[in-house]
Computed example of a mutant assay.
Amino acid sequence: MIVGILKKPAFADNAAFDLVGPKVDVRVERDGATRPIAEVPNLQSGDRLWIHPVLLDSQSVHYLMVVAFLRGATNPPPENWFTRAETWNKPVRDEGIFVTVPPEAEEALVFLAPETGGAFSTLRNAVRGKPGAFVRAAQDLEQASLDRSRLEAYLEAVKVTSVIDPEELQLRTTFLARSLNIKLDKQCFDKPSAEQVPCLTQNNEALVLDDAHSQNMVATLTTGAPTDLLAQLSSTPSARNGYYSPYIGAVVDVVRILGTTHSAQYQYIPALALPKKDEMHLRLNNPPSFRNPKSVIVIALPPIRPTVAPPLRALDANQVFCANKPDLVLPADGAPLVFATELARNFVHHLETKAGATDLPAKPESSRGGFVIDTQNARDSGS
């Protein structure tokens, strides 16, 4: 008798990204104002970037940092679109470097490579020799990082709610899933309370659902690159059974693409960037190698194109709310990144009253399913 053991597909393991990598601080200066990278959805030509790798003083391997700009799959970038920085040198370690986004650039990547003789020219030649692979890798990395941000926000909120307000776990989790566009298994709520949180967070890489907002932010390359694996995976039984989410698809794609660019000296491993203020926290899915072929960490910066407005929508446009309600929540969805990241800010609810117009501060809260409105001014004015 032959006994078969069904295992989770190997491709899904690529989505773990459970290894903590180094941090990279990034700020963006535009029109005289400086913003932390977590508040910058898109770069623009002329932006001045401050990039500072955060490495331990005890770092035994010298990392060469290379900042590269790309301009499409069929147009190799010029040599002066590559900037090198020796992270072990005191000025770079203490102060970082500044680079400016050149005209016509469309994507930006940061490489961290163990220093060897000729490392800079090797990396530059690899990118210029196969720009389409790195363009696609940049797009998939950015997509996967945005999706991972939604997943992290969901997992953290579920854990916090289970501790602070366990009686509200079902309601809050339902709001979370809707706001962040996360797959919710309602059967988890039929389990004993101690088993609900593990159930809600299991197989977490497959929880992330498709999100048009982040896809619009990251343009899809339609020519000159390998076929997106999502098209192939969508027709497989594993995909229909939920093993593959768009997040996993993007990860599988970028791992495969970077795998085609390896050489005897270097292999390229992706890093998901999870921004918090001006820090990009990196997560790796493979342990770096310091023997040939040595591992080059590949980090995607936000795409270089006009910012796409979040497609927020009211759940019920005809619903009437009372502006004097102290805990007013306006239900909304359609833009998970608004709830999961710091990319959108300074929301207000414009209110027309007999006494005149006023703007009430609005804060997105995924666990409450919409925007929490500060109605104090409306109540004070008797609107």
Rank of each mutant, 00 (worst) to 15 (best):
V320C: 01
Q319M: 10
F321G: 08
A340H: 01
R345W: 04
A355L: 10
N324F: 06
K354D: 09
R345I: 06
G334K: 02
D316G: 05
T341N: 08
N324Q: 13
F347Y: 11
R345D: 13
V338L: 05
V329S: 07
L343E: 10
L330Y: 06
E352R: 09
L351S: 07
V338A: 06
T353A: 13
N324R: 12
K354A: 15
L328C: 01
H350G: 10
P336Y: 04
H349W: 12
N324L: 12
N346K: 11
R345G: 08
R345N: 13
P326V: 06
A355M: 05
A335Y: 01
T353Q: 03
K325V: 03
H349T: 12
P326N: 08
A317Q: 08
K325H: 13
D333R: 05
F339N: 02
C322T: 05
A340M: 06
T353Y: 05
F339R: 01
C322A: 13
G356T: 04
G356K: 05
D333W: 01
E342M: 11
N324A: 14
K354G: 14
A355G: 14
F347I: 12
H350K: 14
A335Q: 03
T353I: 06
A323L: 12
L330E: 05
L351K: 04
P336H: 03
D316R: 12
H349R: 11
T353W: 08
G334D: 01
A355V: 04
T341I: 10
D316L: 09
E352I: 12
L337D: 13
K354L: 14
A332C: 14
A344V: 07
A340N: 03
V329N: 10
P336T: 02
D316W: 00
V320D: 05
R345F: 07
L343Y: 09
L330V: 15
G334E: 02
T341K: 05
L337A: 10
E342H: 11
D316V: 09
D333H: 09
P331R: 11
A355T: 11
F347V: 11
K325Y: 08
T341M: 08
D333I: 01
